[in-house]
């Protein structure tokens, strides 16, 4: 084992200047800007669903969308705040109210639609396009967030990963309800909850290992 004074000496010789992180709110805003960009590109590529204006007049649909978008924004802010060592963990509660609103709306729709329509309306083509939207939205956003928050690995990996995944899942869900008409089918509801559960579940199980491959190695002083 190297002696502590020797370690300190080796760390402080050849010390390179570092660029301080920008304030967490600004960084969260940057990431949300990227999310908005991804959504716009998808809108250009796939086209917004034709009945969006009409659906937005439905209070259940509108509040569900607003709640999922708000959950995405607040969870991103919380992730950036909690990733810093000197901020309170209580910020994790920030997206909770909108999350509850979002999930309770999905639950209600799910029940209502189960009774009235049934699962036979799902076409394979639509499901595949739905999946494409899902991957196209969540993959770049997850990777960007992973790189932006990599320094949190030795501190609060699980909390930060869960918050980040929630942000990605909520924004993906918002994107899905923008682009796909089959919000009344069981399929999209499964996606909506499924993305959130899969992301959060994976994050909870692999929270530590997810960060590891982008983390600067802690045990190698230079």
């Amino acid at each position: 084992m190297i002696k502590t004074p020797d370690l300190i000496a080796s760390l402080s010789t050849n010390l390179t200047p570092v660029r301080r992180l920008r304030p967490p709110l600004m960084r969260a805003f940057g990431w949300l800007l990227l999310a908005a960009m991804v959504l716009t590109l998808l809108a250009v590529a796939q086209g917004i669903r034709p009945d969006l204006a009409q659906r937005l007049r439905d209070p259940a649909f509108a509040s569900c969308m607003a709640a999922s978008a708000l959950t995405g924004i607040l969870a991103a802010v919380a992730a950036f705040l909690v990733s810093l060592p000197d901020r309170s963990r209580l910020w994790l509660m920030l997206p909770l109210p909108s999350l509850i609103l979002w999930l309770s709306n999905i639950g209600y729709q799910c029940l209502a639609d189960w009774v009235s329509i049934g699962p036979e309306g799902i076409g394979m083509g639509e499901a595949a396009r739905c999946f494409a939207t899902l991957v196209l939205t969540s993959l770049p956003l997850s990777l960007a967030l992973l790189v932006m928050l990599r320094y949190a690995a030795p501190l609060r990996p699980t909390a930060v990963t869960i918050m980040g995944s929630l942000a990605v899942a909520a924004i993906t869900a918002t994107a899905l309800s923008f682009f796909h008409t089959m919000d009344a089918t069981v399929m999209i509801l499964m996606w909506n909850i499924g993305t959130a559960v899969i992301f959060v579940g994976f994050a909870g199980t692999f929270g530590r290992t997810i960060f590891r491959w982008v983390t600067p190695r802690v045990d190698a002083p230079h």
């Binding site: 502590t4 370690l7 570092v18 660029r19 301080r20 320094y151 030795p154 002083p221």
Partner: peptide, 28 residues
């Protein structure tokens, strides 16, 4: 102690000098 020192070294850019140092250090 050495683990903490190495962690401080690798994430020293996350410290914001306009905020107190104690809580930052204590959490790490």
């Amino acid at each position: 102690v050495q683990d903490i020192l190495l962690t401080i070294h690798s994430i020293r850019h996350t410290y914001d000098p306009t905020r107190p140092f104690g809580p930052w250090l204590a959490t790490i």
